[in-house]
Amino acid sequence: MSFHIFVQQVVNGLVLGSVYGLIAVGYTMVYGIIGMINFAHGDVYMIAAYLTAIFLAALTLLGVQSPPVIILLVLLLTIAVTALYGWSVERIAYRPLRHSTRLAPLISAIGMSLILQNYVRLSQGGRTQGTPTFLDGSVRLFEQGPDQFVQITHAQILIVVMAVLGMGVLWYLMQATAMGRACRAVQQDRIMASLLGVDGDRVISLVFVLGASMAAVAGTLVTFNYGSFDFFIGFVTGIKAFTAAVLGGIGSLPGAMLGGLVLGLSESIFSGLVNTDYKDVFAFSLLVLVLIFRPSGLLGRPEVEKV
């Protein structure tokens, strides 16, 4: 593999990894706080992709032209509605099960995922949809002749920048604000936190809203970059993002991002060096190997067993 090709594969991996990371955050936060795997999260991301396309088309119809305005408006609108979806999913399918067995919400999440997929299919149709290319243009790096270059599109740059930015904002919210402290308190001990006046249900809702917002960012950026989506993308990407969350250590925010990047990079470099057919096999084998040697993921804290 020549230098250019290798760098290009690294770029591909970083972009893909950023998307995985953004979605993985939703899985990791929900898991951290109520210990359930939110299987419907991937579908919330799928809804964000549809919303992006719809808002983009609507703004174009209204005659908005300037790209930065469009990006900002679409992003804000998508985040708002997607967050509402995240909140409603929790209200309908998980809150009634708060005090039941640990596995009941898992099944209700799988049901919710079916509902969301079919809801979008019934209202938007089953076919693959797309958006017109909106952020064209690209940057060429290290150009040394007709085949020797690394090409990055503007949309790809936007993905990486927004992923870093989104993670930064989330990190700040969780570490430096009263809201974040409440979240962490509930994560540590829900009963104790409620004794200290933190409303557990509210914090859990908030976590779902934040997770959905990050999924919305991912959905918007992916739609800008790949321009193609259908009602099934949530499932395909969701499983990968969940893998990323576990790889990084579920419950840990930086872990989710790291897991996403590791997964994205390993997928693209494996498919560049060896074979695309087996890239998913490699990704899952990597996960199994990491967990055998580090049973709580890359950045997860080892569980302490109390007697």
Partner: peptide
């Protein structure tokens, strides 16, 4: 080579085509 149905990111494969 085969890609995976349902995925949207084929950049790694495209780079391989260049390679």
């Amino acid at each position: 080579e085969g890609l995976t149905r349902g995925e949207k990111d084929f950049n790694a494969l495209v780079t391989k085509l260049r390679a």
